[in-house]
Design a protein around this nucleic acid. Sequence first.
DNA 1: ACGGCTTGGTGACTTAGTTACATACATTAC
DNA 2: GTAATGTATGTAACTAAGTCACCAAGCCGT
Lengths: 223, 223
Amino acid sequence: MEQEDLKRIQMKLPFLQDAEDKLLQEFSRLVRIQMIPAGTTVFWEGDVCHSLAVLLSGSVRVFKAGENGREITLYRFGPGGGCILTASCIMNDGNFPAIAQVEEEAEAVIIPANVLRDWVNRFYSWRQFVLGLLAQRLADVITTVEEIAFRRMDARLAEWLLANRTQESRFVQTTHHKIAEELGTAREVISRLLKDFEMEGLILLSRGEIEIHAPEKLKLKMK
Amino acid sequence: MEQEDLKRIQMKLPFLQDAEDKLLQEFSRLVRIQMIPAGTTVFWEGDVCHSLAVLLSGSVRVFKAGENGREITLYRFGPGGGCILTASCIMNDGNFPAIAQVEEEAEAVIIPANVLRDWVNRFYSWRQFVLGLLAQRLADVITTVEEIAFRRMDARLAEWLLANRTQESRFVQTTHHKIAEELGTAREVISRLLKDFEMEGLILLSRGEIEIHAPEKLKLKMK
DNA sequence: ACGGCTTGGTGACTTAGTTACATACATTAC
DNA sequence: GTAATGTATGTAACTAAGTCACCAAGCCGT
């Protein structure tokens, strides 16, 4: 890896900014950079993991799939985030318990499993990075449990719409199917609830796009 | 801590069996043993954590509570297990994202947060222990998500009954309310499903106790 | 025996998930 | 342009799950 590549990567990965010199040296020697196109499945459920991918750009969605074709998002991560379930696998030799898929084309640094393990033992900054990622993921998934166990679907849908609108804060470009996978329910349920929202004048539906008419009123639906 | 105490603890905590001598020394100097009676709430949601409890006996249940009084179990742990959400808190200075409560009276070793942090940096065996716990919890919670997002309540109930019967493998001593909290649903739902099972001749209901009549047939309900 | 508490039962209603289609729009093939 | 195909959405009917309101039976202490 070139010196300028390392500089660029350091900008994007905070833990490298105050990392040990030795870690930086080994980093530029042992890690390779790779572009991963949108749609690529990084890990399948049950895979044994041989490396950890840490993102420099793009985003990855980690989700569970049920037999009936339904899905639910566990969490997603972007630049600076890593597919840490892989690390957890490496630690206790287990298999990957979910599916990880690139959503927006990603640039990632790929760290082989044995290197990762070695670094955990030798470098404080890397240790903090890995433990921080694991703890964050645990918190994310616990939040997901809370959502699906206790909150109503209309409230979750309202929140999702508001969180995923564009800058102009009026439009959401997606399909009912994708929202359903996001929230872990069936497409029909989403279609029904969206229709209800439209009846109440909160939103306006068209193919592949939802226009938010009354964001304030939609906010009230959140709880 | 006495030498014989340490020996006893080593028997119960596998990671101490091939631990560094120095870790064992500091362990017996810095850690205290404590009995915690059943019903004690070890951590409340939002608590800042100052120590990690690792169990020698007994069991702890970690759960989320919703506003409406409902609960759902995230995971539980017994001897050798630790309340690792606390460790995750210590790492990134966050708050405890759930409630942890002692179910069966527990004997625990209490490790102060600063000691825990120090050990993570210095001892391989302790590092493995902490990472292993975190990874295990993550896997547990992901399993919980899968359960509530995709499986039907009657299947989950059947599985729970079979998993929680006594040695004689016929009786489960609990209340409908407790099962509901376990599975993250309402008491009425559990009562209704149990009644259905009774109608089908699978179980026999009485106050505070459920007798399993036809375990094989109940097993079929699991999926 | 009385009163209060815990546990379980039940009906009516709302919300969510499933099944099975029908319809509308968009893209490509001809 | 029109047909064919695939994707996206609409909807009705039904089952499963969650909520609300209340009642009844068992249990415990005085």
